[in-house]
Structures are given as structure tokens and as C-alpha cells.
């Protein structure tokens, strides 16, 4: 039986990796991939706790996270295509219309 804290540490490492990816990368596709990393980190936590408490509610919530991830990818990639059409670039530094 693996201690629960191992899963929490693994999930924390993956989450922080995704967070760093969102903060430092300029390619907007990599930023979306990093968001997927963070969602997967929370999923690992959910499943580990679900196994620990012998309660499948955590796995049901992973199911909902999956739904949200699919919706996020569909809308996010549509936004990327629209942005690429208007600027011919997917570098986030180029998109500063709302910056002042």
C-alpha cells in the first residue's frame, strides 16, 4: 500500500510544472498543454483520495474534470485559430490589445 502523501507530492510536482509552463512559455499552444498538465495533476489527487477513502465520488469528479478539459480544448483551440488568423502568430506577447 503506497502512502497517500506520495500521490500528493507527485500531483504537486506536476501541478507546479504546469503552472511554470503557463507563466514562462510564449507559445500559446504550449500554454494550453500546461493547463492540461494541471488538470491531470488534480485528477491524480482525486483518484488517489477516492481509493484512500474507498469512495467513488472522487472518480465521478474526475469524469467531470474530463468534460471541462474537453470543452476547454475545443474553445481554446478555436480561439487560437481565430487569433492566428488576425495576427499570423501564436506568440502571446503579440496579443496586447487589452493592455494599457
Amino acid at each position: 500500500m503506497i502512502p497517500l502523501s506520495y500521490y500528493v507530492i507527485l500531483s504537486a510536482i506536476v501541478f507546479v510544472t504546469g503552472l511554470v509552463g503557463v507563466l514562462i512559455r510564449r507559445n500559446i499552444i504550449i500554454i494550453l498543454l500546461s493547463v492540461e498538465l494541471m488538470l491531470n495533476a488534480t485528477n491524480i489527487n482525486f483518484v488517489a483520495f477516492s481509493q484512500y477513502f474507498q469512495n467513488v465520488a472522487g472518480q465521478v469528479f474526475v469524469f467531470f474534470t474530463l468534460t471541462v478539459a474537453a470543452a476547454e480544448v475545443a474553445v481554446g483551440l478555436a480561439i487560437i485559430i481565430a487569433l492566428y488568423r488576425s495576427k499570423s502568430s501564436i506568440n502571446v506577447d503579440e496579443f496586447q490589445l487589452l493592455k494599457w
Binding site: L23, I24, R25, R26, N27, I29, L32, L33, V73, L77, I80, I81, Y84, I90, N91, D93
Partner: peptide
């Protein structure tokens, strides 16, 4: 994701902020 990456056909650019 792969579909969009290949659709956009981006050149390599500077990675980090």
C-alpha cells in the same frame, strides 16, 4: 492539439518570456 499544431505550421520562435 496535434491537428491544430500542424494546421498552424508555426516556425520556431523564442521560447521563454
Amino acid at each position: 492539439y496535434l491537428f491544430v499544431v500542424m494546421l498552424l505550421n508555426v516556425k520556431r520562435e523564442e521560447r521563454y518570456h
